[in-house]
């Protein structure tokens, strides 16, 4: 039997206290990490000047995060638009308003599905890649090597990736919505046989540039900042091992998805005018 003097104080005081202490330690750790993430965000902004002045670095990241995500964004947008066309027609035809299909597809995509689904796809495709790349650079001492060469990794590696993601995200959301509207057209007009003029003119009349398009763009910009911030932070903070990078990549996708949906509720509530 273990001597009394060797038993840790928490165990001696009972399992409830031990559990409470663990919960307290976990909470403190999470708060500390959140604080570190906030300071990290401010540091990125501080080092953004030099990165944006060398715009070639940002362009390269726009290529990796944006251009290379075009296929998944385009194909997903087309399919989502087609599904909206089918489901929308099914519902609208019951009320004799099948001509409003263009409006339904466009508003659904521009206000909601475009920014949200594009952000979720962006987090899975580009966010995870950014985390893995920065995490591996850390694990293979590339970031440390840069620091020893008197080159700041936040300015050379993190800030260009951050801005590359932030710039790419609204563009990808816009492409997603545009291709989705085309998908709705293919179903509604080409397949089902609705009038093409009605499809476009109803859409043009109902979609408001400021309330719908601009709000959608604002959403996608906010999602872009959130997802890219999470991605670069998780990569930079990853444990420098294969398992650490793998866990960080998973955390990027999961945290981004939850943050996108939470922010969507918040932004929709703020933008909702009851009209």
């Amino acid at each position: 039997m273990a001597e009394r003097g060797n038993v840790p104080p928490a165990q001696a005081a009972g399992p409830v206290r031990a559990r409470t202490e663990r919960l307290g330690a976990w909470t403190l750790q999470k708060i500390e990490r959140l604080g570190f993430a906030a300071r990290f965000f401010l540091a990125i902004l501080r080092f953004s000047g030099p990165s944006l002045r060398r715009f070639g670095l940002v362009m390269r990241e726009i290529h990796f995060a944006g251009v290379l995500s075009l296929v998944i964004i385009g194909v997903s947008g087309l399919f989502v638009g087609m599904v909206l066309g089918l489901q929308g027609y099914e519902t609208l035809v019951r009320y004799g308003s099948a001509e409003a299909l263009g409006t339904l597809v466009a508003l659904s995509l521009v206000r909601e599905l475009g920014p949200v689904v594009a952000a979720l796809l962006f987090a899975s495709r580009a966010g995870s890649a950014i985390t893995a790349e920065i995490g591996l650079m850390k694990a293979t001492e590339q970031l440390a090597a840069m620091e020893m060469m008197a080159v700041e990794p936040l300015a050379r590696v993190v800030a260009p990736r951050f801005w590359g993601g932030v710039i790419s995200m609204p563009l990808l959301a816009a492409i997603f919505s545009s291709v989705g509207i085309l998908g709705g057209y293919l179903i509604g007009v080409v397949t089902i046989g609705l009038d093409a003029g009605a499809y476009w003119s109803q859409m043009q009349a109902a979609v408001d540039f400021r309330d719908d398009v601009i709000n959608g763009v604002i959403k996608s910009c906010v999602f872009g900042v959130a997802v890219t911030w999470i991605a670069v932070f998780e990569g930079y903070d990853a444990a420098p091992t294969a398992e650490g990078v793998s866990r960080a990549t998973t955390r990027t996708v999961v945290t981004s998805a939850l943050v996108i949906l939470a922010l969507d509720v918040l932004l929709t509530a703020l933008m909702f005018r009851g009209t």
């Binding site: 293979t140 590339q142 090597a145 060469m149 008197a150």
Partner: peptide, 19 residues
């Protein structure tokens, strides 16, 4: 610190080349 590091070279265990 950065001024000092610019006069310093370091070789890491596995090279740490930018991949």
């Amino acid at each position: 610190l950065y001024r000092m590091r610019s006069r310093l070279g370091m070789l890491f265990q596995f090279g740490a080349l930018f991949t």
